[in-house]
Write a protein that binds this DNA or RNA. Structure first.
Length: 595
RNA sequence: GUCCCCGUAGCUCAGUUGGAUAGAGCACGAGAUUCCUAAUCUCGGGGUCGCAGGUUCAAAUCCUGCCGGGGACACCA
């Protein structure tokens, strides 16, 4: 049973509408949550304008057409049922035919003890019904430390996982390690150059190799473990294999260290090389072949950019996947000229593996530069005939600003802005919050100065400050000998000030907001919600500055003051719980004080 | 040339999966601290939701076309 007030009333309203339609007074309503949306679907939502009550129902408008009646007349038929509904203060008809519900104060006030009892499971739900979801995120190539763009995907994927877990999904966090292709060879070659340099040879790093300084210690470590003489004496092929394995491992250690600093973790790391080794690629392609989705053919020359025709392109016959049959703009090669598998082929194997593991939903978090790759992978996914849902969430580019202008990429660091350099300055929590104050499919400017700013303009600070202020009150309350147990017995009807009511109503929206953010796979909604919640808290705080009688902690000279204090502390306790839990979903730690 | 994403206040951005008079922060103007952290709050001005059509009770939101910005169009991963 849901404890989301909006969900509870949605169900009550639905039942009431059903009864009415059974009596033949109104057409049959349909549930907006149902897969097939019909015009008769209704919604019960908090109205934008609080003067329109607490919950707005659009059923009369939605059903008007089917009923062949005007919405306001239909609303008149529905209104009595809503009016006598439990906890409803009044049900009014407004505007084009809205039915606005205003709930009794006690309904809102009872939200406080509910939060105190549920603690951090307030807002949790079983909506996901144990849905098994695989979220693949980061999956950065093991060729260097994480950069700022990877970090956005990392934070997004991690927050999405936390969010969907909160709504009852069983999440597996996964990282796909591309360690079988040409990039791993390039890495090995780069490290070998570094080895030889370290052994005293004067050779330059060839064009196309990875220039980053971070490979120097990797080379030295390998020399130490395997011996320079021995490595030099080895034949090319076994040496390359060894260097590949060792440097990929070193790179993954580097990446895992970065992820740890970011507070991001994965349940499993799937290595492309392992898939290749056990013949998974051949097997997966074989399955598609059997289904008739693979053929041998020649692709037309690539279009290229304006006026730029590919000079080195020659027609070639190879195995193609019939992606065009599943909505992609072209068929896609599975083999290279030399007969080896393409990256796409092993990705097909990887996703076949995902399907085989029986997930209900597969989410891929990618950088926006992979947008064009999504249709072919979706095509492959569908070709296997999997019933699982397939989502691609694209995280757009991050531009780092320092002193108002974009930071130049450092060549020595490998041509990108390293996550660790940014993290060193901002810290994990501010970084994560900043990354989530923007929806994933819009580019993001990351302003170093603003992230560190201790002012209203910086949302993470604003939210943390609210939490810290609450903690400060509790420190004083403790000194005054007030206990948490007493709060639970408080008379919540005393919370009647307009600012208190607004805050309570915002708290009560948390479960709905979590459900919404989760179903839309949009963690940023939580960040914005927290900002709104903090704003109402700060407003209430200042009410007490102007009017001492409205302060949280009164002198406790008499029973009345003591009762007020306890009720207000309960409200603060509930606010603290929701702030902390909201931050937790974003992977941000709430702070007790700001100093 | 084709595909994807974006276009909302001077600036940075939200916008409840189609709802009522489109919101917040910054900036600008005016105010509030003997008192729980003023690192905050209150009030005010500020809009053709890129443009033009369409769909319907209702469009910033959905569809089509255009304009502008970004990204992608490998036998690289």
């Amino acid at each position: 049973m849901s404890h989301d007030l909006f969900e509870i009333y949605r169900r009550r309203v639905q039942a009431a509408l059903k009864t009415l339609s059974a009596k033949g007074e109104i057409p049959k309503p349909s549930n907006p949550a149902a897969a097939s949306r019909r015009p008769s679907a209704f919604a019960l939502e908090p109205p934008r304008d609080s003067r329109h009550g607490d919950m707005a129902l659009n059923a009369a408008m939605a059903l008007a057409k089917e009923a062949g009646e005007n919405p306001r007349a239909l609303a008149e038929k529905i209104r009595p049922a809503l009016q006598k509904m439990e906890g409803v203060e009044k049900a009014e008809i407004a505007g084009p035919g809205f039915l606005n519900l205003t709930l009794k104060d006690e309904i809102w006030q009872s939200e406080i003890p509910k939060i105190l009892a549920l603690k951090d499971s307030y807002g949790s739900s079983a909506r996901g019904e144990g849905r098994r979801v695989l979220i693949e995120y980061v999956s950065a190539n093991p060729t260097g430390p994480l950069h700022i763009g990877h970090a956005r995907g990392a934070v997004f994927g991690d927050a999405l996982a936390l969010l969907m877990e909160k709504t009852g999904c069983a999440i597996t966090r996964e990282y796909y390690v591309n360690d079988a292709g040409a990039q791993a060879d390039t890495l090995a070659a780069s490290v070998w150059t570094r080895c030889r340099q370290s052994l005293g040879e004067t050779i330059a790093l060839k064009e196309g190799l990875y220039p980053g300084d971070y490979l120097v210690p990797v080379a030295e470590e390998i020399l130490k473990n395997h011996g320079g003489d021995r490595l030099t004496a080895m034949k090319d092929e076994p040496r390359r294999a060894l260097l590949r394995e060792e440097s990929v491992r070193a790179m993954m250690d580097l990446i895992k260290a970065d992820l740890k600093d970011l507070g991001v973790s994965h349940d499993c790391f799937i290595h492309e090389s392992a898939l290749v080794r056990r013949g998974a690629v051949k097997k997966a392609v074989g399955i598609l072949e059997k289904k008739g989705f693979v053929h041998e053919g020649t692709l037309p020359p690539p279009k290229g950019g304006k006026g730029k025709e590919s000079a080195d392109w020659t027609p070639h016959r190879h195995l193609l996947f019939l992606a065009s049959r599943f909505g992609d703009s072209s068929d896609r090669p599975l083999q290279k000229k030399d007969g080896s598998w393409t990256y796409f082929a092993s990705d097909i194997a990887y996703h076949h593996d995902k399907i085989a593991r029986g997930f209900d939903e597969v989410v891929n978090v990618w950088g926006a530069d992979h947008a064009g790759y999504a249709p072919r992978l979706r095509a492959a996914f569908e070709a296997f005939g999997s019933g699982a849902d397939f989502h691609v969430k694209l995280c757009h580019m991050v531009r780092v600003l320092k002193d108002g202008s974009p930071v130049k990429m450092s060549k020595r660091a490998g041509g990108f802005i390293a996550l660790r350099d940014v993290l060193k300055e901002t810290g994990r929590d501010a970084f994560r919050f900043q990354m989530l104050t923007r929806k994933n499919d819009a580019p993001l400017d990351f302003d170093m100065k603003k992230v560190l700013e201790q002012a209203n303009e910086n949302p993470i600070f604003y939210v943390q400050y609210a939490h810290a202020r609450i903690c400060s009150v509790f420190r004083r309350a403790e000194e005054a000998g007030l206990t948490e147990e007493e709060e639970r017995e408080a008379d919540f009807a005393l919370l009647a000030h307009q600012s208190e009511t607004s805050l309570i109503k915002m708290l009560a929206r948390f479960p709905r907001q979590v459900a919404l953010a989760s179903s839309m796979r949009e963690p940023h909604r939580i960040a914005f919600y927290l900002h709104d919640l903090a704003a109402l808290f700060h407003a209430l705080w200042n009410v007490g500055k102007d009017a001492p009688a409205q302060r949280f902690l009164l002198e406790n000279r008499n029973d009345e003051e003591r009762a007020l204090t306890l009720a207000r502390l309960a409200l603060l306790r509930a606010s603290k719980i929701v702030l902390a839990e909201g931050l937790r979903i974003l992977g941000v730690r709430a702070v007790e004080e700001m100093r």
